[in-house]
Design a protein around this nucleic acid. Structure first.
Lengths: 247, 247
DNA sequence: CGCGCAATTGATTGATGTCAATTGGAGTGG
DNA sequence: CCACTCCAATTGACATCAATCAATTGCGCG
């Protein structure tokens, strides 16, 4: 069952953009003036389907989502994790055809904004246009970091790097506190994000716990020593662009 | 020794953009009207340095380049390969700080366009602005494909997938002919792109040759059976967006 | 011919996947 | 409250894959 309504504040998007550059009151008004529909999705539902040709782009308001590709032999790869405030398929505005799908890892809410509306707002504010562009470009930077982890980091550093990344992104979205955040995702899904087998995720998690940098109980992740974990995982937060600059 | 001059046609860029959407005569004029400086780089030189804050973006006119990250322990990961016509650090227009460097894998020529010039042209043509955005978003799609290869494909399928991708990209740039292209890159560099050890690249290449899909002698790569290689590597070219569509 | 670099090979170690079983915890019906 | 069920987490044993170390070969060039 899909719930749809028109009431939804786009505050998470404003918050996310404001982390990277000042967003004026006029720009906030433009954003809040975007026509959109709201959907509530349950864990496992697709927000956007592979091969579809979206005419609207999808913004996550709450919950965790992932981009995933399923190969012919049934193997699955998650190529990105998204947190509230992320415009998960903004790139569909230009790509036209989705080469992957976006799924809900937890129950979540999303706002769908017609491409026509995005173009209208970008015509009013080229700065907002650049901020939208920026958000797709940050997604790309995160993907490069994943490629690096996958190719050249040990299994525990790969996982540790992901934990550091998630923590900073969630903290920026005010969804983390004191090194702790909730990440209600099964180890099998983590496996698909890391490119590991399920068993290997489990053992890597145990290795990481043994270092004392991280505690992970149920869906609560606690970073006990961020500096230590970051050094161990060779994590450099520059690529997240959590810096307010004129763009 | 760095050679610099101001004469350089940006035709490779026009060709690349024209693959994805019609580019009008006016738009071509706008592109050719971009102020820029030209540099000739030798194999191994850096086009753009990690941690730098570019005020111009770099377009490859000829030769192969790569984005690379070097970790503290000396391990290297190549996160993207670029072919002539690619705007390799267009994203620096928004990211401001480079989280990786771009290096020349072969001797090559590049044009550097000041960000101010890009903003000027985008103000004249919002369509060109979207085409620039598109090119960064295609880079992102390629990166997702790399993540998928790295995480969920066998070593030979990973390499096979990369060969299919390079072939189509080079073919689109008119740098391939009859399944054959020149790729003067050492196995050690291929290793850094695939996230393999050098020895493993060598053996994977032998496996792939044994399938009969590919011949790779010196720097000449010949795809003997594209359909077979694509099926074997689960290669679906959709993500390359080599389709002319209104964007 | 001999140098130097890239490609190749062999042997071994270590990391990771697979298969199969067991444990643990939350929810459910009796 | 207890037994039962289901699913996720965990463990053990083993097979494979891939990294490492250490030669050796092949080739272009002075």
């Amino acid at each position: 069952m899909v719930h749809t309504s028109t009431t939804a504040t786009l505050q998470p998007l404003v918050t996310s953009l404001s982390l990277r550059d000042a967003i004026s009151a006029e720009e906030v008004a433009l954003i809040e003036g975007l026509a959109r529909r709201r959907r509530v999705l349950r864990k496992g539902e697709e927000l956007v389907s592979q091969h579809s040709q979206p005419v609207e782009s999808c913004l996550v308001l709450s919950g965790f989502t992932a981009r995933e590709v399923v190969l012919a032999d049934g193997k699955r790869q998650i190529t990105a994790l998204h947190v509230p405030g992320d415009f998960v398929d903004l790139h569909a505005l230009l790509l036209k055809i989705m080469d992957h799908s976006v799924v809900a890892l937890t129950d979540c809410e999303a706002a769908y904004v017609p491409h026509r509306e995005l173009l209208r707002v970008m015509a009013c504010s080229s700065h907002l246009g650049r901020m939208f562009w920026l958000s797709t470009v940050i997604d790309g930077a995160i993907q490069r970091a994943w490629i690096t982890s996958s190719g050249r980091r040990s299994a525990s550093a790969h996982l540790g790097h992901l934990i550091c990344e998630l923590y900073l992104r969630l903290d920026a979205a005010r969804l983390a506190e004191g090194g702790r955040f909730t990440f209600p995702v099964a180890q099998s899904e983590l496996a698909d994000a890391l490119g590991f087998s399920l068993v290997h995720v489990n053992r890597t998690l145990q290795d990481l716990r043994a270092t004392g940098f991280v505690s992970w109980k149920g869906s609560v992740v606690t970073i006990l020593d961020f500096e230590g974990l970051a050094a161990f995982s060779q994590f450099d937060p520059t690529y997240l662009n959590l810096v307010k600059l004129p763009r």
